[in-house]
């Protein structure tokens, strides 16, 4: 017992000294890992950009297990890291439990809303960006059949799909959209082999443009599409460079901007609800030298028109998550 007491006493004093460490920001990546060339990597890029610009440093961890969500949050908060950014909706329950215990620490959660006074919830209007790539897919398709491959079957991914279908149908009402989800477990975010198989299946059904909203799984989709000579559309980060001339565009979800802003705002960042959409460049389509040969002026004009329409409110893109249904599917 006394030994235990000494142990605990020593631990307590250790914890106190650790708490006095400097207040670097921290970021926690989801199970997909920070080099998924997609969502987590975008978050990592945002953090890196901040570090390069300011010369600051930040703490980071890639999770290995579910139990580590709360553990990592608490450890960073106790360590004095502030703000703490979480890349992914799956942190919601852990954050609900941890946030009230650290009222002086600011938390930022991406893709989810957590209603606590010290939390900034960042959500994206993915349906708007997906609508734009849907317009491009319909313009680029020769067969009139385009594909969508989602990661895990959750409402967020249906939101991508729904926006995409709306964009396709608005451009070519007769177009067919084939949709597949990779799986129902988090493993679906990181299964490029299955992504490739689904792509082949869609090609055999006539698809000649495939949009992947599937994290690491999307790499397999883009690879297979390039190998089979059809076009693909990347997601989250700009993935045009992965197969130059084969990737039509990428639906940019500026997770990097969200992370960068959070780090830049630092300890006194504003909490509450933050929506990043077309209007404030939170989502968009990637145009660069790698896809310049694929995008003609007509397509560009169509995208610009749709973008202007959405921003002005003329075009209403239905948000799947508002009522968990999609009018065009």
């Amino acid at each position: 017992m006394t030994l235990m007491r000494t142990f605990l006493g020593a631990a307590a004093s250790l914890a106190l000294t650790a708490g006095a460490a400097l207040a670097d920001p921290a970021i926690i990546f989801d199970l997909g890992g920070k080099f998924d060339k997609s969502f987590n990597e975008a978050a990592f890029n945002g953090a890196t950009k901040w570090a390069e610009e300011t010369g600051g440093s930040f703490r980071e961890i890639e999770l290995q297990s579910e139990a580590q969500r709360e553990q990592a949050l608490r450890r960073f908060a106790e360590n004095g890291n502030n703000p703490i950014v979480m890349a992914g909706f799956a942190f919601a329950s852990a954050l609900e439990a941890v946030a009230p215990d650290f009222p002086d620490t600011k938390f930022v959660i991406i893709d989810m809303v957590v209603d606590q006074p010290n939390v900034r919830s960042v959500v994206f209007n993915e349906h708007e960006g997906s609508y734009l790539v849907g317009v491009m897919a319909a313009k680029a398709s020769k067969t009139g059949t385009v594909g969508f491959i989602g990661g895990m079957d959750i409402p967020l991914i249906s939101k991508f799909a729904c926006g995409y279908v709306q964009g396709v149908k608005a451009t070519n009402p007769d177009a067919t959209v084939i949709q597949n989800m990779t799986g129902t477990t988090p493993a679906a975010w990181n299964d490029p082999v299955k992504g490739g198989e689904l792509t082949k299946a869609q090609i055999s059904q006539g698809a000649d443009v495939v949009y992947a909203a599937a994290g690491g799984t999307g790499l397999g989709v883009l690879q297979t599409a390039a190998d089979e000579g059809i076009l693909s559309i990347g997601v989250d980060s700009n993935q045009n460079y992965l197969h130059p001339g084969k990737v039509l565009t990428s639906m940019l979800k500026r997770v990097d901007v969200a992370v960068y802003n959070a780090f830049k705002d630092g300890e006194d960042l504003e909490t509450g609800f933050s929506v990043l959409g077309l209007a404030n460049d939170g989502v968009g389509v990637a145009m660069d030298e790698h896809n310049a040969s694929l995008v003609d002026d007509e397509m560009k004009a169509a995208v610009e028109a749709a973008k202007a329409g959405i921003i002005s409110g003329e075009i209403k893109v239905h948000d799947y998550m508002s009522d968990e249904s999609c009018p065009v599917m």
Partner: peptide
């Protein structure tokens, strides 16, 4: 088992409106 649990959590046991596939507390 993984597929069964995935199906049940996504379609039967999930709280409506919750993004993560999990039961209520």
């Amino acid at each position: 088992a993984a597929a069964l649990l995935g199906y049940l959590l996504v379609n039967v046991l999930k709280e409506p409106g919750n993004m993560a596939a999990e039961t209520r507390s």
